[in-house]
Amino acid sequence: MNTIYDIQQLLKKFGTIIYVGDRIATLELMEEEVKELYQSQLIETKEFQTAIMLLRHEIRMLKDQKSD
């Protein structure tokens, strides 16, 4: 898993498609869904850690761009 697209595909395997029109809000909801999958033991620890890291990095970058 290397991109946000990869995370979207992972969520899609579980029947979850998230799009709310706001990129940051979409990413935050994706993070919540990944957490739920992990807590339900549906994804491995490595997948969870990688997905969370990618999502948080992307959210941080977008928030930094907004503040400029």
Rank of each mutant, 00 (worst) to 15 (best):
Met1Thr: 05
Asn2Met: 04
Asn2Trp: 01
Ile4Met: 01
Ile4Arg: 05
Tyr5Val: 11
Asp6Val: 00
Asp6His: 05
Ile7Gln: 03
Gln8Gly: 09
Gln9Tyr: 08
Gln9Ala: 11
Leu10Lys: 02
Leu11Thr: 10
Lys12Trp: 09
Lys12Met: 09
Lys12Leu: 03
Lys13Thr: 06
Phe14Glu: 15
Thr16Gln: 14
Ile17Thr: 11
Ile18Leu: 13
Gly21Thr: 08
Asp22His: 08
Asp22Gly: 01
Ile24Asp: 05
Ala25Thr: 10
Ala25Gln: 15
Ala25Leu: 13
Leu27Trp: 08
Leu27Arg: 03
Glu28Lys: 14
Leu29Cys: 09
Met30Gly: 08
Met30Val: 03
Glu32Phe: 11
Glu33Lys: 12
Val34Arg: 04
Val34Ala: 07
Val34Ile: 15
Glu36Gln: 10
Glu36Val: 05
Tyr38Thr: 00
Tyr38Ser: 07
Tyr38Ala: 01
Ser40His: 09
Leu42Phe: 09
Leu42Met: 15
Leu42Thr: 03
Ile43Trp: 06
Glu44Ser: 06
Glu47Met: 06
Glu47Lys: 01
Phe48Ile: 04
Thr50His: 02
Thr50Lys: 07
Thr50Leu: 11
Ala51Thr: 01
Ala51Asn: 02
Ile52Trp: 03
Met53Val: 06
Met53Pro: 01
Leu55Met: 03
Arg56Asn: 15
His57Met: 12
His57Tyr: 10
His57Ile: 05
Glu58Pro: 06
Ile59Gly: 05
Arg60Leu: 10
Arg60Asp: 13
Met61Leu: 14
Met61Phe: 05
Gln65Leu: 15
Ser67Ala: 14
Ser67Glu: 13
